[in-house]
Nucleic acid binder design. Sequence first.
DNA 1: ACAAAATTCCACATCAAAATAGAAATTAAA
DNA 2: TTTAATTTCTATTTTGATGTGGAATTTTGT
Lengths: 138, 138
Amino acid sequence: MRLSKTSEYALRIFSFMINDDKQVFSAKYLVNNLNIPEKYLRNLLTKLTKFNLIKSIKGRDGGFVFAKNADKITLADIVDAVEGMDKYEKCILGFDYCDESRPCALHHRWHPIKQQILDFLNNTTVADLRDKEGNLRF
Amino acid sequence: MRLSKTSEYALRIFSFMINDDKQVFSAKYLVNNLNIPEKYLRNLLTKLTKFNLIKSIKGRDGGFVFAKNADKITLADIVDAVEGMDKYEKCILGFDYCDESRPCALHHRWHPIKQQILDFLNNTTVADLRDKEGNLRF
DNA sequence: ACAAAATTCCACATCAAAATAGAAATTAAA
DNA sequence: TTTAATTTCTATTTTGATGTGGAATTTTGT
């Protein structure tokens, strides 16, 4: 697929957080553990905070925590905050009007696959990112 | 999904050509019928020619024709020529190494869907774009 | 109160995709 | 042979995503 790089980063942040024992994650700690440019990561954390996906704790010993329970944060929430979900819902040929009654040449073949992608993003939560078999590497 | 805009354009060119009676398609004719910036479309046609997906006929009354039979041109061929297929084959979290033996946190859930996308692109041909029910609009 | 550790804000730099511009080269019809 | 209709080439501009830099602000521990 082709999520934006920023969406990749965002998902990796959540994937890391759900699989680490810490309760509060300082930006510095995330920088040290994720392979994401420092400044870009900090900006991204601020953005995710504004969308109420994580909460920031200021001051000494501060950092970031989940803003709500991990099973209430979907991948679609994250992607939507970072780059918008619109692109993934649109016609594959880029037409404005494409739907069941006025389908593009690919609509009938593509639609069921697109639906699976959207279901995947909408129904997978951060809690689902928890690794059960200990084979994660960052 | 999120093909690049250029891939969208390219697919629309083929979709239009397979559904139009003409044999030779001048750039001007395509410009008039597809909603794509003129200069950009012309450059794109040249590119597709270099990848041997269409052939150009120069000079007066020239234009473009399919370089091979429509059922021998896959969507993946087109996307690959225009932007490369690599992106669509990579790990959804952007890791280099992600596979069955060292999966990322999303690998098992995402892999079957990714496979469907790739099958769709690899197995759908330009011939499949032919509209049977006459409900195409451009 | 002070200093340390953190987030936040504003501005700028880089890069690749997308879009544009103009001139050159090719061909075939008349 | 002329001319018109075409493709082709090289270069530049614009735009949005990605990435950097530095100072300001907030908060906590001591």
